[in-house]
Computed example of a mutant assay.
Amino acid sequence: MIIESKVIQGKKLIFNFRSAKKEDASNLSVLRLKIDEETEFLDREPGENFLSPLDFEKLIYEDSISEKNIFLVAEIDDKLVGFARLQGNNLSRFRHKAEFGICILKDYWGFGIGNSMLESILMVADSNGIEKVSLYVVETNTKAIELYEKYGFKREGLLEKDRIHKDGKYYNTVLMGRLANKLKSQ
């Protein structure tokens, strides 16, 4: 799915928010590596599960023609600073669900980019028959958990000792979900 480009006045900065384009593939490959190096909150160590520009081109194309997927980017002064992706499920038993993730360069945390991406993802999900949106978040990422709860996500489970980081310590993962507005009243 493709959304129209929007200019957003965030907290102390203005950013452009739009669907990813084929031309973004190289920059997305580099951006993903940089973000992986900046935080322990993601599932990957830096360089793991590397996505090449061709891999990103394929994702961008597949998401652009899907009714349940969306790939968004945030840019400031023509520089990509973050991205988000909602991925629906094509299996019959899970076609009502989708999962998402958001990645933003650390220098741009706290400026409202994540809020804007999440709002757009939920709008797309709600308007396209996705009844449940799920995510996994490391328990120590309290800012992200607060953001998700603000948008109606509930904690559905805790995966204990689910991940091990470079420091040799185990961390728990919180499973969160949000039901579409029409289901909340049932």
Rank of each mutant, 00 (worst) to 15 (best):
G112F: 02
E139Q: 11
M117G: 01
E131P: 01
M117D: 00
G114A: 15
E119N: 09
N128L: 04
I121Y: 01
G114I: 07
V137M: 10
S127D: 14
L135K: 03
E139N: 12
L135V: 06
S120G: 08
V137S: 10
L122S: 03
L122C: 07
V124M: 07
T140Q: 02
V137H: 11
Y108P: 06
D126M: 02
I121L: 15
E139P: 02
I121H: 00
S120T: 14
W109P: 05
V137E: 09
L118Q: 08
G114D: 09
G110Y: 14
L122M: 12
G114P: 11
E131K: 14
S120L: 10
L122T: 07
L118K: 06
V137L: 12
V138M: 13
K132R: 15
G114T: 09
G129N: 13
V133P: 04
S120F: 01
Y108D: 09
G112R: 00
K132G: 01
S127M: 10
G112Y: 02
V138T: 10
T140R: 05
E139G: 10
I130N: 06
V138P: 00
G110H: 14
V124P: 01
K132S: 07
E131W: 07
I130K: 08
D126R: 00
W109G: 06
N128H: 15
T140M: 05
S116Y: 04
E119D: 08
V133F: 08
M117C: 04
L135D: 03
M123L: 12
S116L: 00
L118V: 07
I121K: 00
S134D: 08
V138G: 00
S120C: 12
S127G: 11
G112W: 01
I130S: 07
L118T: 04
